[in-house]
Simulated assay, not measured.
Amino acid sequence: MVRPPGVRGTRLLPSDRRGQLLAAARHLLERGTIDDVRIETVAAEAGVSPGLLFHYFGSQRGFRHAVLRAAAEELLDHLRPDPSLAPGEQLRAGVETFVEYVCRHPDVYLAITRLDGGSDMRTLHRSTRATLAGWLTEGLTTAGAPATPALTMAVAGWLAYMEEVVLTWLDQPAMDRADLVNLCERTCYQIVMAALNDSEQYERLTDRVRGRG
């Protein structure tokens, strides 16, 4: 059995021990599904007693939520926009990074998005999307898009669309990854155009987004 380093036989600060236990759970999640992340299984993987996990996380449900929250935070760290890039470059980089992350960690992302685990799990998914939507909306409004309800709903809809398209592509990879990225990027511009409903305003916005204005 392969264990994350530094778990067994090592005295750690509580925060470090908690991180090590989450790493052991993540190791299991990479090889299976969230159903495989049980306190008893993770305890055996980490070489500790189940009671230690109950001490840190309170319950099986609390432990799984902590595992998925850590995974969501990792995803957001990868997708955080680079302020040195133009908004259009941020969008392209974000789509490429999102596709790369989901391809490398499909079971982790499926656990975040598709788990029927109650209101706390749904809240985690919504809050992750809301953070991404906030970043994208900020980039668009900085480039001159009006902060309207239509734009807010368009951005939220596009994120849901991209998520579903990428997950469908994982099951049925009927196009190259580069074409998938292009599709998601192109659709973002199209849905923003629909939200603006003004062709001249859209042209000015895309010039600024792409660093031409």
Rank of each mutant, 00 (worst) to 15 (best):
L136E: 12
D107Q: 12
G144Y: 00
R92V: 12
R114K: 05
P149N: 06
Y109N: 05
A133P: 05
V108G: 05
L136G: 04
R129K: 15
T137C: 08
Q90F: 04
P106C: 00
T152Q: 10
S127H: 06
A130H: 12
T141D: 02
R92H: 14
I112Q: 00
A147W: 08
T113S: 11
T128Y: 04
P106W: 05
P106Y: 06
E89I: 09
L91N: 15
G118Y: 15
D107W: 15
S119W: 13
W135K: 12
T141A: 05
L140I: 05
V95L: 14
T141S: 10
V102W: 11
R126W: 11
G88E: 10
A150Q: 10
A111W: 03
G134E: 00
A150Y: 09
Y101H: 03
H105K: 07
P146E: 02
A93K: 13
L132R: 08
D116T: 00
T97D: 04
H125C: 05
G118E: 11
L151M: 04
G134L: 00
G94E: 02
R122Y: 14
D116E: 14
R129D: 15
T97S: 13
P87M: 08
A143H: 08
D116G: 11
G94Y: 03
G118V: 08
P106E: 03
W135Q: 06
D120L: 15
D120P: 13
L136N: 09
A143D: 02
Y101S: 01
G139P: 10
G118F: 12
P106G: 06
H105L: 01
E100I: 03
L136I: 08
Y101E: 04
L110C: 02
R104Q: 08
L115N: 06
L110W: 00
A133R: 14
G88I: 08
I112P: 00
R122G: 14
A147R: 11
A147C: 06
P87N: 07
F98C: 10
T131E: 02
S127Q: 09
A111D: 04
T131Y: 01
T123K: 15
Y101Q: 08
T128S: 04
T128E: 03
L151T: 01
Y101W: 09
V95A: 13
A150H: 06
E89T: 06
V95P: 08
L124G: 10
D107I: 09
E138Y: 11
H125L: 06
Y101T: 01
W135I: 12
A130C: 03
A150C: 06
Y101L: 03
H125E: 00
A150D: 07
M121L: 14
F98V: 15
R129W: 04
E100W: 12
A147D: 13
T141N: 08
T141M: 06
A111G: 09
S127K: 04
L136A: 12
Y101N: 04
A150F: 09
G139Y: 07
E100D: 13
V108W: 04
T137I: 00
G94Q: 06
F98E: 12
